[in-house]
Nucleic acid binder design. Structure first.
Length: 247
DNA sequence: AATTTACTCAACCGCCGACCA
DNA sequence: ATGGTCGGCGGTTGAGTAAAT
């Protein structure tokens, strides 16, 4: 996909400083483009089965906290994971619909990991596309509370009325907010390790050899995880990077 | 070959919190 | 204390493309 043809807009009414230097992007937009598209550490291509499994697992724990999930998948952005989830949940919803329809034409996905998604109890029980009250892929995890984030992963809870109404001790097994917080504390230190080695047979990128300020810092957030000693290099070729910069 | 449908994914939107003058 | 700026996040959109008809 080449350069996106969406028209540029200044976010926030053009109050960002970039307009003064002739860029047709806000600083915010530049940052987003770098993080989600230009960053040399980004993996490209399809999710591996390991990654897919991890996404399913983490989403069942954390819900739609994409940035957090992304930290466990170095080289993948929250945006990418979000898109992946959206795509696959839509696919799953359609297959469910088809399965419920009178004319049974069971189409089995050929995706290896997708079969595991459908077998995941948390994901499998999701009310996707059946109700318009919530986004069809807004599922899983600690869904009875909406977490509003702040810097440094300080979260506060916004208890949604619908959620509270629908879960009274119920399927999530939470009786009180205290339990939720306790569970969250546990999750903070869950020992889940990032997925590495998928492309480990590929030689390190020259770009990654220029490890200066923050190429690895992107995947080392809040001091919580450090790739450090088992630093992993992604197969980003200089050609790939050039293409992205010039696309 | 033309058209339709499904899918991908970069970018936008709006909100919130941190920071600083 | 306050208001402006900015970074970061989750949710959403829509252009481009691939696959199917």
């Amino acid at each position: 996909m080449g350069f996106h043809s969406k028209s540029f807009r200044f976010e926030g009414g053009g109050r960002y400083k970039n307009e003064n230097i002739g860029l047709k992007r806000s600083g915010k937009s530049c940052r987003l483009r770098w993080v989600n598209y230009l960053h040399p550490g980004l993996k490209r291509g399809k999710m591996t089965p390991q990654e897919e499994h991890l996404i399913v697992e983490l989403h069942s724990k954390w819900g739609n906290r994409w940035s957090r999930i992304a930290r466990k998948l170095p080289g993948r952005t929250d945006n990418e994971i979000k898109n992946y989830w959206r795509t696959h949940m839509r696919k799953q919803a359609q297959e469910k619909k088809r399965a419920l329809s009178p004319s049974p034409s069971p189409s089995v996905s050929n995706s290896s990991a997708y079969s595991s998604i459908t077998s995941n109890p948390t994901v499998d029980s999701m009310p996707m596309m059946e109700t318009k009250e919530r986004s069809f892929y807004d599922t899983g995890g600690l869904e009875m509370v909406t977490l509003t984030k702040g810097k440094g992963d300080n979260y506060k809870t916004n208890c949604s009325a619908t959620s509270l109404n629908s879960t009274s001790e119920g399927q999530d097994g939470y009786n009180s907010m205290d339990e939720i917080w306790q569970d969250m504390d546990l999750l903070e230190d869950d020992g889940i390790k990032p997925v590495f080695g998928t492309y480990s047979e590929i030689a390190p990128s020259p770009i990654w050899d220029i490890r200066d300020y923050s190429l690895n810092a992107l995947w080392m957030i809040d001091g919580e995880e450090e790739i450090g000693s088992n630093m992993f290099f992604f197969p980003t070729t200089s050609e790939q990077f050039r293409t992205r910069l010039t696309s």
